[in-house]
Write a protein that binds this DNA or RNA. Sequence first.
DNA 1: CAATGATCCTGTCCGC
DNA 2: TGCGGACAGGATCATT
Length: 267
Amino acid sequence: MPELPEVQTVLDGFTTALKGRRVTSLTGLYPGTLIIDPDIPNEVFPARITCAERRGKYMLFCLDSGYRMIIHLRMTGKLVYNPTPGEYGKHERARFELEDGTAVHFIDPRTFGKITLCATENMAKFIPELGAEPLSKEFTPEYCRSRFTGKKQPIKTALLDQRIVAGLGNIYVCELLYRCGIDPRRPAKDLSDKELKSVVRHTVEVLNEAIANNGTSISDFRSIDDKTGGFQDFLRVYQKKHCPKGHDIANVRLGGRSSFYCPVCQK
DNA sequence: CAATGATCCTGTCCGC
DNA sequence: TGCGGACAGGATCATT
């Protein structure tokens, strides 16, 4: 499931694959996958991508036709560059055709992923409120304190809230809390300043390690070249039976999500 | 306003 | 072997 490091990996690959190339068309192949802002005409393509950035788990693109594109992979979305054009299996939900005849396929078995085309001034309508980028200087212990004050919900749930921190998902929150030695069930408001410092430090640490390894290939995550990520080899608690120290891992549901932690190491 | 729950969707895995 | 059911979960919407 793509979280910040996986989205960054896909974005880098997609940008590289499309660098200097003209996209001749974008075709939606499943109802609801391709969303088009009613304020824009249909002539979005052909176009070149002139800029690409990530915001949380959203990929944002500028097109030289003057419009914007937003891609969210949700659970199972993948972008696959295919140098030999043609059909691409039953889970293909959208297709970018390039002028040289190659294509990028949007593959998404569970169909939650979305590609949005919109006018620049309408961007905000298609992107929800997002909190701090965890790899920016905005993400500090003081920021966490301000957002966690009065929050009774578990720290795990608060960190998954994209309005508080943008880009974290279930895997990395489980992992960073293990590194912090913090029980995921603890109310967010109860964390000490020292613990918030630890949360920030370990969030940055785990995300940077994952990015360096091209993400985590749990489920079926692949980069655009269909390569697996490598961070799954470094997971310490997520879907594990034992933590690195040999203790049994517990799995509780918090906010409807399975939450792996070590009852001995995390207090 | 905060917190919880249902929803979307399909591949995978488990038990019988 | 095959079937039903539980499970996975990001974001959104509805409910408490």
